[in-house]
C-alpha cells in the first residue's frame, strides 16, 4: 500500500508538469485552432536557458527562471507573428505542418546552443520528507505546489479577468467577439505569451526533477496532447484530470510493470479512452 502511495505521489509530480504543458496547448488550440506542436521544444528551450544562466553565469535560480520566462514570452510572440499568422486563413493542415517545421527548428537551435548532452538544473532542495513510510523529496513537493499555484492562477485569469473573458469569447465565437470590440489581433499574442510562459515553467520543472535532453520536448508535447485527448478539449478541469490520470498511470506502470514500457501503457490508456469516450473524460458529449 505504501508502495502504491509512493508511486501516486511521483505520478502527481509528473502529472503536474503534464497539466502545465496541456494548459498551454489547450488555450492556443481554443483561440487559433492550431496544434502548437513546437510547444514542447520551446518549453525545453526555457529549461535549457535556466540551466545555462544558473551554471554558466551563476545567476540565482529564481532570477534565472524569471529571465527564461521573459525570453520565452518574446519567443512565443515571435512564433505567433512570424510563423502562425501567415497561415491563419489557410487550411488547418498547413498550420500543423508549420508547427512541425518549427519543432525541427527549435530542436535544432537547442542542439546548436546547448549540445546533445543531457543536463540537470541544479537546485539546493535536497531534503527528503518521510510521512508514514512515503518519502517525498523536497524538490518534488515544491514542483507539485508550484504547479498547483500556476494552475489556480491560470484558472483565475481565464475566468475572472477582462482579458481572460476576451480569450474565452474568441474561442467561443470569433466573429461575435470582433463585434463586441475584442481585438482579435492581440489576443493570440497574449495567448502565446501565457502558454509559452507556462511551458517554460514546465521545462524548468522537468529540468530540475529529471533531465533535459534532445527529444524530451517532443515526447512532452505528445504527452500534453494525450492529456487533452484524455481530459476533453478546451476545458481546464479536463486538462487537470487528464494530466493527473496520465501521470499516475505512468508512475504506477513504471513502478509495478515495466519502466521501459510506461509510455506504451500510457498510449493504451489513451486509446481505450478514445474508444469509450471520444469526447474525453470531462468533455461534453
Amino acid at each position: 500500500m505504501v508502495e502504491v502511495l509512493q508511486q501516486i505521489i511521483n505520478g502527481i509530480a509528473i502529472g503536474g508538469v503534464y497539466v502545465l504543458i496541456a494548459l498551454g496547448l489547450t488555450t492556443v488550440f481554443g483561440i487559433l485552432g492550431i496544434a502548437h506542436f513546437a510547444h514542447g521544444s520551446v518549453s525545453m528551450f526555457g529549461g535549457y536557458l535556466t540551466f545555462f544562466f544558473v551554471t554558466s553565469w551563476g545567476i540565482p535560480l529564481l532570477l534565472a527562471i524569471l529571465i527564461a520566462l521573459l525570453v520565452g514570452l518574446v519567443l512565443g510572440v515571435l512564433i505567433e507573428l512570424l510563423a502562425y499568422r501567415p497561415v491563419r486563413d489557410a487550411n488547418h493542415i498547413n498550420a500543423f505542418i508549420v508547427a512541425l517545421g518549427l519543432t525541427m527548428m527549435v530542436e535544432g537551435i537547442n542542439l546548436e546552443l546547448f549540445g546533445h548532452e543531457q543536463v540537470v538544473i541544479p537546485t539546493d532542495f535536497s531534503r527528503v520528507f518521510n510521512i508514514g513510510g512515503v518519502t517525498i523529496p523536497e524538490l518534488r513537493l515544491y514542483v507539485i505546489l508550484a504547479a498547483a499555484l500556476l494552475i489556480a492562477a491560470m484558472t483565475v485569469f481565464v475566468e475572472r479577468t477582462k482579458t481572460g473573458q476576451a480569450i474565452r469569447a474568441v474561442a467561443e465565437n470569433r466573429d461575435a467577439a470582433i463585434l463586441m470590440g475584442v481585438n482579435v489581433k492581440t489576443i493570440p499574442l497574449v495567448v502565446f505569451a501565457i502558454s509559452t510562459a507556462l511551458g517554460v515553467c514546465a521545462g524548468v520543472m522537468v529540468g530540475s526533477l529529471f533531465a533535459i535532453a534532445p527529444g524530451i520536448g517532443e515526447g512532452l508535447v505528445v504527452k500534453g496532447f494525450a492529456v487533452l485527448i484524455l481530459g476533453g478539449l478546451g476545458s481546464i478541469p479536463g486538462a487537470v484530470v487528464g494530466g493527473l490520470v496520465l501521470g499516475i498511470t505512468e508512475a504506477l506502470a513504471a513502478g509495478f510493470i515495466s519502466s521501459a514500457y510506461k509510455d506504451v501503457i500510457a498510449f493504451v490508456v489513451m486509446i481505450s479512452v478514445l474508444l469509450f469516450r471520444p469526447q474525453g473524460l470531462m468533455g461534453k458529449a
Binding site: V222, L228, V264, I271
Partner: peptide, 28 residues
C-alpha cells in the same frame, strides 16, 4: 479505428504517439 474517431489534429497526435510506441517496442 479508435484514432479516426477524433478529428484533425488529434488524429495526428494519436498516430504520432503510435510511432513512439512502435519505436519503444522495437528498441526494448
Amino acid at each position: 479505428y479508435p484514432s479516426l474517431r477524433v478529428k484533425g489534429h488529434y488524429f495526428a497526435i494519436v498516430t504520432l504517439a503510435f510511432n513512439m510506441v512502435i519505436f519503444i517496442v522495437l528498441m526494448n
